[in-house]
Design a binder for these strands. Structure first.
Lengths: 116, 116
DNA sequence: CTTATATATGAATATATGTTCATATATATT
DNA sequence: AATATATATGAACATATATTCATATATAAG
């Protein structure tokens, strides 16, 4: 009767191998975490929450959040780059809005978690 | 006939005032962005995705993600602190799992956005 | 065309963050 | 009890990031 194999590591060496194969591909994970990271800054969170209600220009956002125009513009750049917001020139200002309904859902899902 | 009031700022001074009152309170926004920030690091994203499928111990996670035990443990500390994961000692290891179904939904919603 | 207004952007700086290394703590095994 | 295994944690360091300041770009108003 064979000696019982000494267990290497707590458990699931086999399960780990299976999981390794099922893991989402690297680029998907990278984009996923970048998206969450974009939502994970107070200023950007506030910008996105505001845009849930209404398209706003940089000037208005700066007013609303009581921050410098430059700071807002830099953050909008980040959100723009990640396609979380879209924008369109209109009159004097550039108006930003959520790019996608998914963004809204993400925010609401997050709020649900926080406010439970 | 009164001179047309010169428009200060592009537009919505009034709308901005209304929005200001409707904004989520500061602590909610802080917690919200902290939650997203926690999801916004590749290592933590991978940990959470793995835990979507299966409870795993530190050792297994380190194996799965090909990272040092210490790095994983530090990140689990972050997730633990934010109540995104729960854990329980079992046999030799400490097994981590998602704390909450909301976390799973958040991840799925994020994946939907990324994979569209 | 000239001036005022609105936005974007580069550089600099202060701060936050992730990993490593060393080591402490805790449980299991013998 | 002694040893091996598993996890947690503090300090240090390198890197990333958010805001400010100065200024460039772009459109509107006169």
């Amino acid at each position: 009767m064979p000696k019982k194999a000494k267990q290497r590591g707590p458990v699931n060496v086999k399960a780990v191998e299976t999981l390794k194969k099922r893991m989402k591909p690297e680029p998907v994970i990278a984009q996923l975490s970048e998206t969450f990271k974009a939502l994970g800054d107070p200023t950007r969170t506030r910008i996105l929450l505001a845009l849930c209600d209404l398209a706003l220009c940089v000037y208005d956002l700066a007013l609303l959040l009581n921050m410098s125009q430059s700071a807002i513009s830099h953050q909008l750049g980040v959100l723009r780059h990640l396609k979380l917001v879209k924008y369109k020139r209109q009159g004097r200002g550039v108006y930003y809005s959520l790019d996608d309904e998914h963004i809204r859902h993400l925010l609401y899902e997050g709020i649900k978690h926080v406010e439970e």
